[in-house]
Simulated assay, not measured.
Amino acid sequence: MCSKLVKRAYKYRFYPTGEQCEQLARTFGCVRHVYNRALAERSRAWTQEQRRISYAESDKMLTQWKRDLETHWLTEPSKGPLQAALRNLQSAYDKFWRKQTGYPQFKKKGRSKESATYFSNCFTYRDGQIRLAKQSEPLDIRWSRPLPDGASPSQVTVSKDARGRYHISILVEDTTIAHTPIGSAIGVDAGITSLYTFSSGEKVSNPRHEKRDRERLAKAQRVLSRKQKGSRNRAKARLGVARIHARIADRRRDHLHKLSTRLVRENQVIAIEDLSVRNMVRNRSLARAISDASWSQFRSMLEYKADWYGRTVVAVDRFYPSSKTCSTCGRINTTMSLHVREWTCPCGAFHDRDVNAAKNIEAAGLAVLACGDGVRPPRS
């Protein structure tokens, strides 16, 4: 077994004092303002002058905004979160230029999670306590698990979700020990009836986290719709809706963490489908179920955990006909509707649709790993 240094984030919940709540609220507001104003300036420069504004230019603009009398309040919070907002915007543009995401959107107050990132020169970590810049008291953190021995945080991100909970994510360098190499490989087929089907024949049932609270969520949303906009009762009703959403997300994340950790521990190679979830959710009949399955989040967990522990995740081409191909003889059926869950190949092999697809994904993943090529079938 070998070890290596990796950057890992440890997330904890904390309970700020009244003074810290006010200070964090001002910081969140300043971060949102800087992000939106920089986005507006970059959009204007491109539409009117056909010119791109770099991160260095936007950083100079931030300095000027702090000197202006109208926005002199930008000097109240620490400089770190404001510079981090510009870096996040630059990262959003980089992903847009690489066609990974859409064009950056403006941040709206109260519509999403609010966060602020502090670099190492904007906080102190001493005796197991974290004190943010311009705060007199350390944060009251619930240390649900200890940080690695001798860890020195390089940055922390403080966030507040729609439910009103505060969390802190601490980024540290940690030494991970790669799991003992084993010869097992597994193919994973994503689905809705069965959340995941493995090439070993095992099926993981779909917990349907959103469906369990659907009636309660619908009732809370009806109550919210009847409240007057801007009233305190509407704010209370909005918080009730956010609590249900948070409970659903927490259950889903916990289930995916346990499943992904298990796969990484038990298998050296994990073959998955390269699904285009963005296009799949356009199907109005399946959009809710696909979003609840959270296939993209599961793939992300598999990839970073495999990188930590010396495993390999292989993504098979999304156009590979894994469901229509016989895993015994390799014959490809030209047509097979979605309602067909079991079928018999002319070679005599009887297949469960999902298990057969998982076996083909495993074989295709091993082929990609060995040959370094795609597995898209020929157009002929």
Rank of each mutant, 00 (worst) to 15 (best):
T328W: 03
A45S: 14
Q155W: 02
C345F: 13
V204E: 15
S276Y: 14
D94K: 09
S260H: 12
G128W: 11
C345D: 09
S322R: 05
A249T: 10
A289S: 15
C21F: 06
S380N: 02
A293W: 12
R165C: 07
D307W: 05
L62F: 09
T71H: 07
A40M: 03
T157N: 04
S120E: 04
S154Y: 10
S78G: 00
A271N: 09
Q268P: 12
N233T: 01
K227D: 00
G183Q: 06
G29V: 05
R111A: 13
I177H: 14
W308Q: 05
L39T: 09
D59N: 07
V269C: 07
D373Q: 12
A38R: 08
R222N: 03
L5T: 09
W343L: 03
R243A: 07
V277G: 00
R165Y: 12
T193R: 15
K95G: 00
Q268Y: 12
R51H: 08
L24I: 13
F198G: 05
T157R: 05
C326Y: 10
V31H: 06
I186Q: 11
E273P: 01
S285P: 02
D307F: 01
H255N: 14
L62I: 02
R44P: 02
E49W: 12
Q48C: 04
L132P: 04
S200G: 11
A287T: 03
Q20C: 07
Q155C: 06
D127E: 10
S194N: 15
D274Y: 03
G187N: 06
